[in-house]
Every structure is written in structure tokens, then in C-alpha cells.
């Protein structure tokens, strides 16, 4: 069963066609990679899926239901959550609070209840905090729970973003260059972390990454974009040897 189906999605900004007639499917429980040279339209794809942009034409199905035209928060509520290429944490909030914001999506109590400090709101908050602490622990951030997220170091910020996204309990997790700016050791840790997410939580993940070691090491199938259009897709071994992919990355065929 395909969790996400992108069907001939196209978006134009004025004369520029940023994503051109792209179709792919992400099956349940897969680690799916989206790669391509700079400016290929990968992040724009993410923005289409998460509802920040609306496709000019084409359709995006999630869980068998079209999500085109839905607001970002509605799509998040349906179970798609993402991280950002340039980290976008809530800088002045603590790491714990950042994760609780993610978990808040599934809240039950109403705002008046919270304003009157009714037991249900308190209990719910306690539950959310507990779950957030559990997640922070999973990502090795428990000791930083109360520090301002702005003050965390770079690798921790990246991990915190993933934890925050995981707190929404997404069916599909979109990671936008999670390894950017990490050193080789951190990258190895990240790869292990991503595999664990899949193995322990059964998480479906769609991943944008430039670092080929990470992509090839983690993903089970890969989709390659260039100039907004598909040039290849398949398992890593195939992509590695695909002449078109090599051309897109290195220019002229060798």
C-alpha cells in the first residue's frame, strides 16, 4: 500500500517551472530518498507535500486522500511532518517545549479549559511533557531538555528538529537534509538514528540529502530530480551506476 502518491505534480513560479510533472510513490514503512543537484526542486517538492505551496497542476494523495489545497497545519494533522533545511526551531523556547509543541497537535482539552486550568488540561500537559521527555531521551537530548534550543550545538539542533517532528506521531516523516553541516562521526550516528526510527517505530521516511554516503547507506529506494523533472528512480545500486544521474551531478558523461 502506498502511503504517499505524488501524481504528475507541477508548480510554476512565473516563468520558472520549479517542479515539472513529477510522479512517485512512497510505500508504507520505506526509507525513501529524494536527491538531485542544487536547485533541482527537492525542497519545493517538500513544500508541495506539506501544503506551503499549492501545485499548479497534478495531485498529491496521502493515505488514499487528496491533500492538495489543504493548509499546512491540516496536512500535519493528517500525519505528515517535516524538518527544515535551514533549521527552524522555536529559538527562545526550551528543547522540551519545542517537542511539546509537536505533540500538542493531538490535544483533546479546549482552550477555555486551559484558561480555567481544569484538571483535564493539566493532566494532558503532564502527559505531553512525559512523552516529550521520552522522545528527547530516545534522541539523546534528555540532559538538554531545559536549555534554550537556540543555545544547543548544531548537531543537537538537527536532532531536536527530528524529535519535534516525531512528536506529532507522523505517518510520514520528511527530513530535509538532516546531515547538512554534520561531521562524519555525527553522520554515522544520524544514520543509525534514522534506521532505528524505521525499525523501532516502523516510521516511513522521505529524505532529502546531499551526502551520498548517507543516502546510499540508509535509503531503500531513491528518486532523482534534476531541473524539476525526474531523471531516475530505483534502488541505490542502480542509481549509483545510472549514467543520467552521474551526468546530472558531474556534468558531461565521463
Amino acid at each position: 500500500m502506498n502511503l504517499l502518491t505524488v501524481n504528475r505534480a507541477t508548480i510554476r513560479f512565473g516563468g520558472l517551472v520549479a517542479v515539472n510533472d513529477v510522479s512517485f510513490e512512497v510505500p508504507q514503512g520505506r526509507l525513501f530518498g529524494l536527491i538531485g543537484p542544487n536547485g533541482a526542486g527537492k525542497t519545493t517538492c517538500f513544500n508541495l507535500i506539506t501544503g506551503i505551496y499549492r501545485p499548479t497542476s497534478g495531485d498529491i494523495l496521502f493515505d488514499g486522500e487528496s491533500i492538495v489545497g489543504k493548509k499546512p497545519h491540516q496536512i500535519a494533522a493528517k500525519g505528515i511532518c517535516r524538518t527544515f533545511q535551514n533549521i527552524r526551531l522555536f529559538g527562545d523556547l526550551s528543547a522540551l517545549e519545542n517537542v511539546v509543541v509537536g505533540g500538542f497537535l493531538r490535544h483533546r482539552s479546549t482552550l477555555p479549559e486551559a484558561l480555567a486550568l481544569m484538571p483535564r488540561a493539566i493532566h494532558e500537559t503532564e502527559g505531553l511533557v512525559e512523552y516529550a521527555m521520552h522522545l528527547l531521551d530516545t534522541f539523546g537530548l534528555a540532559h538538554e531538555a531545559n536549555s534554550r534550543s537556540r543555545d544547543l550545538d548544531y548537531g543537537n539542533q538537527r536532532r531536536l528538529e527530528i524529535a519535534r517532528a516525531m512528536a506529532t506521531k507522523p505517518k510520514l516523516l520528511l527530513l530535509d537534509e538532516p546531515a547538512a553541516g554534520m561531521n562524519p562521526m555525527e553522520k554515522i550516528g544520524l544514520m543509525a538514528q534514522i534506521r532505528r526510527l524505521r525499525d523501532e517505530f516502523g516510521q516511513t521516511i522521505l529524505l532529502i540529502e546531499h551526502d551520498m554516503k548517507v543516502v546510499m547507506g540508509v535509503c531503500e529506494s531513491i528518486f532523482v530530480l534534476d531541473h524539476g523533472a525526474e531523471i531516475a528512480h530505483g534502488p541505490p545500486e542502480e542509481i549509483r551506476n545510472d549514467p543520467k544521474v552521474i551526468e546530472a551531478y558531474l556534468g558531461e558523461p565521463v
Binding site: H73, A76, F90, V101, G102, F104, A114, L128
Partner: peptide
């Protein structure tokens, strides 16, 4: 004091990220 305040703070910090987190 409750988690209901966090969406407000999240909007202050980063609106786009907040909406991506379902706020």
C-alpha cells in the same frame, strides 16, 4: 502553564515552522 500556551509562543518564534507542526 498548560500546553495550550505553546502554540502562541510557537507562532511568535516561527510561524512557518509552527504551522508545519500542526499549529
Amino acid at each position: 502553564k498548560t500546553a495550550h500556551g505553546l502554540p502562541f509562543l510557537a507562532v511568535r518564534e516561527d510561524e512557518l515552522a509552527a504551522s508545519a507542526m500542526g499549529v
